[in-house]
Write a protein that binds this DNA or RNA. Structure first.
Length: 599
DNA sequence: GTTAGGG
DNA sequence: CCCTAAC
């Protein structure tokens, strides 16, 4: 406490800080984000699909192979040149990538580097055999069903998103998933894919409004922490939790300010994408087959008795692939080409959100990546093996690009990289052809805007080969994307909060935002001191402008008057302080020099 | 880690 | 709200 005060009063002792501490935050963060980005690049969902397709299709070696290994990065797979093996009696494999490459063909300019590198060789040749459930050779636009998918539902799935299905020796026609809401896709992903973040915007959360409304006691009890990537919040939480509890353990009357004045306001919940949404009825499934593999009897004895270590192989294979149901709304006068693009974008978006692979055996999720296949029940001997489902799940590492934003303006705030400049690279110049996306009479070209949002990053990043037309993203762009994905939700200050802020600033002044935070917003985790500072800034501005110019929830004039008063008072204080300092320096310049010399 | 200010 | 510079 004491030392803290000292620092506050005498300013920062630069020399006391480690050199690293002074490094710009951006620099410090950049290194972290870099790894995230590259990881993201590596784990493009489509990559994953391809990987799984590949893995499922070859003789995967010992069943002791861990699940983890099974779904490792496809780059490793291809590099290691795993033996691909396709049972002859089976219908040709159609990997998911083929679907997309077909879609890809709709716009040749899109991505020459698209999927070919992933599926070159054998798989590519078999692309013709692709079929989606419900039949059809998968040619042209038949590859999609628009708005009319079957509604098979599979019980027991608690997973998300894309589902790969495999069964031993059976051509599986999987029953669907447990409930419609469980199966995500474009629109649904938004709430489903980032389930952890959803709490943030849930009514419950809005009304409880974290922090200050809670009694102090709950501070240490488990609670939901906003995960939607505000680094500041995370940092503050981290630090507050260790240093905070003891420091502020005492009850202070003003802490409970909000408990008397608590107020909730509605958080607008808008629909994510009006023109494309899924019905939540259809899953997104790769059908696979599990084959009885050759059995090399080489039991390993004496290694852990519980292991049944026959060197048995399990062959898995994706039989077909289809996209989930998509609802597409498009003006009649839009071109067929634009429709195709929309579909392409929708599908790609679905796959572009940094998914990871999940595995379910007989309806149960297998979370332990270290289990062997055999231990998991994936065994050639397991004739009752009902189902083996692979799913693409949203990565928990970071909020999903398209799915994390609760606001309808996701495409503006979450995906700034997907705007014109980049789109041109992806789609070519005709993308902006007015005929493709006619604006509505009011000039709101929502369609175009939304479509921009739908352009997936992963799509263009699939194989950064020399042929790839899209230039590699600059580091800044990557950083932008990351940051955009992590932008916090906008949470307007309530009058109550404003009042607390004003009161605190009246007391503490305008230069001690951390103290303001601790004093009046200690438990409001979603309000950082920077937020408070910013709010004060806008409050001062609001107070200066005419009431007609003000927007949002009106702040009582009485409060604004106080804002102006406090602002004037404290700026004056600051000026006086500065004057005193200047005066001192002018009067006794030698004194300070002498002090320095002494040190 | 905080503060200040521009965007 | 975010970002950056500077403390």
């Amino acid at each position: 406490m004491v030392s803290h005060k000292c620092v506050e009063q005498f300013g920062y002792k630069d020399s006391l800080l480690p050199p690293n501490a002074r490094a710009p935050r951006s620099a410090r963060r950049r290194s972290i984000e870099k790894t995230v980005v590259s990881e993201d690049d590596n784990m493009c969902a489509i990559d994953l699909l391809a990987t799984v397709a590949g893995h499922l299709s070859f003789e995967s070696g010992s069943s002791l192979m861990s699940v983890d290994k099974l779904i490792e990065d496809h780059r490793l797979v291809t590099q290691n040149s795993v033996k691909m093996e396709f049972p002859e009696e089976d219908t040709p494999l159609m990997p998911p990538v083929a679907l997309l490459s077909q879609v890809n063909s709709y716009q040749g300019s899109l991505s020459p580097c698209g999927f070919s590198s992933v599926i070159n060789g054998k798989v590519e040749d078999e692309a013709e055999g692709f079929s989606y459930s419900g039949g059809g050779g998968g040619g042209g636009s038949d590859a999609f069903q628009v708005g009319n998918f079957s509604e098979d539902v599979k019980p027991g799935i608690d997973g998300d998103a894309v589902v790969l299905d495999a069964r031993p020796n059976v051509v599986v026609s999987l029953g669907g998933s447990s409930s419609r809401t469980e199966v995500p896709s474009i629109g649904n992903c938004a709430s489903h894919g980032v389930r952890d973040d959803v709490n943030l915007f849930s009514r419950d959360d809005d009304e409880n409004f974290s922090g200050y409304i809670r009694p102090r006691v709950t501070k240490n009890s488990p609670r939901t922490v906003p995960r939607i990537g505000d680094r500041r919040i995370r940092k503050i939480l981290a630090s507050r939790h260790w240093k905070g509890s003891s420091r502020h353990a005492d009850t202070k009357p003003w802490r409970n300010y909000y408990s008397q004045h608590q107020k909730s306001y509605p958080i607008k919940k808008r629909k994510y994408f009006d023109h494309i949404s899924d019905s939540m009825t259809d899953d997104y499934r790769l059908r696979t087959k599990m084959h009885r593999g050759s059995r090399k009897v080489s039991s390993m004895k004496g290694h852990g008795t519980s292991f049944v270590s026959s060197d048995a192989h399990v062959k898995l294979r994706i039989k077909s692939f289809r996209v989930p149901e998509l609802f597409i709304e498009i003006p009649e006068d839009a071109t067929v080409g634009s429709l195709k693009r929309m579909v392409m974008e929708a599908v790609s978006t679905l796959l572009s959100d940094g998914h990871r692979v999940g595995l379910m055996v007989q309806g149960k999720k297998v979370r332990d990546d270290n289990k062997t296949l055999h231990q998991t029940g994936i065994s050639q001997d397991n004739t009752q093996l009902d189902s083996l489902d692979f799913s693409l799940e949203p990565s928990s590492e970071m909020p999903q690009l398209l799915t994390s934003h609760p606001s309808g303006h996701a495409y503006e705030e979450v995906l700034p990289v997907c705007q014109a400049a980049n789109l041109d690279n992806v789609l070519g110049s005709d993308y902006h052809d007015a005929a493709l996306f006619p604006s509505d009479p009011l000039g709101n070209n929502n369609m175009t805007e939304d479509l921009k949002a739908m352009i997936p990053e992963a799509l263009t990043d699939l194989s950064p080969g020399p042929l790839c037309r899209k230039p590699k993203k600059s580091e800044q762009q990557q950083q932008q994307q990351q940051q955009a994905a992590q932008r916090r939700i906008r949470r307007p200050f309530s009058v109550t909060e404003v009042e607390a802020l004003v009161q605190a600033v009246e007391k503490l002044g305008t230069g001690r935002w951390r103290d303001v935070k601790v004093r009046a917003f200690e438990d409001a985790d979603h309000r950082t001191y920077v937020d408070l500072k910013d709010k004060w800034k806008t409050l001062v501005h609001t107070a200066k402008i005419s009431p007609q110019q003000r927007r949002g929830e009106p702040v009582p004039q009485e409060l604004l008057d106080r804002v102006l008063n406090a602002h004037g008072y404290w700026t004056q204080q600051q000026m006086q302080l500065q004057q005193n300092v200047n005066k001192q320096q002018q009067e006794t310049p030698s004194q300070t020099e002498g002090m320095l010399l002494l040190n």
